[in-house]
Design a protein around this nucleic acid. Structure first.
Lengths: 136, 136
DNA sequence: GTTAGTACTATCCTAAAGGTTAGCGCTAAC
DNA sequence: GTTAGCGCTAACCTTTAGGATAGTACTAAC
């Protein structure tokens, strides 16, 4: 919201990057398509860290998710090859979910995302501190 | 969807990782909160690659976005310190958007996300090829 | 004075995501 | 026979994201 009056900006479109940009756009689209949404990466992360888990256990770990959504997301994740569902026909029936090797390709994605979120939270905290401490 | 009947799985909850898991969950939550959604990362990526751009230019680059949404997203991104809005009071008025240094902290996030999306697309292609080529 | 361009914005509407509640089929314990 | 736990699932509802269309304020050109 700052007004300026110097140069009309050189309409820097950069033809050489249009293709690159389209590729990036496509790749982001693809990524969001399979692991986008509120829960998928959280579930995968929980299974990566906590190891194979059962349904109710998972619902406790991934705080806030409802059984309906968890069930739906697990189905989608299984369909896309990110997790494996194991049924032990005992009494009572036990079902466990575990990540597949393919999920491990998401390792770097998860770590950068988590790292960024952590640093961002600290930044916000500091910004707030500075705001309340300084008096100018 | 595979049935088994071996061990009831050792209820591997792993107390030592609960905290770790909660932290990851929180970090993912924070990340999604500021750069989640269908468009934000795409816009930042476009500005990163294409350099500072004007409104209509951006709308062309980020294919599929409507003016209303673009306007809304840009406001949010500016509020959170990811982009800078420059107004050149000329005739006609020209407005450019550019990324801030803080946006550059998203570099690793964007590249891993884009890289993963690209490899995933190739995997899907190969899976499909194998499916249509082999006859078993 | 009409048209065109720039950068939006208001209104309205649809569709997808997600939440709430209740319940099923099974078995084992009280 | 009632309760409780496991792993869901169906029905219904709310919230949010996003899309379509039209219009605003300004100015300059025709």
């Amino acid at each position: 919201m700052i007004e300026q009056n110097e140069k009309p900006a050189p309409t820097c479109s950069g033809k050489h990057t249009k293709e690159e940009c389209a590729k990036g756009l496509q790749a982001l689209e693809d990524t969001f398509y399979v692991i986008g949404g509120k829960w998928k990466l959280k579930i995968i992360n929980a299974l990566r860290i906590g190891g194979s888990s059962r349904f109710n256990q998972l619902q406790q770990t991934v705080t806030g998710i409802s059984a309906r959504i968890l069930s739906k997301e697990l189905k989608e994740l299984e369909l896309n090859g990110f997790i494996k569902r194991n049924v032990y026909t005992e009494t009572p029936v036990v079902v466990t979910y575990e990540i597949t090797p393919y999920s491990n390709t998401l390792g770097p994605v998860l770590s950068t995302l988590i790292e960024w979120g952590t640093t961002h939270r600290n930044k916000i905290k500091n910004d707030y501190k500075e705001l309340t401490t300084s008096k100018d």
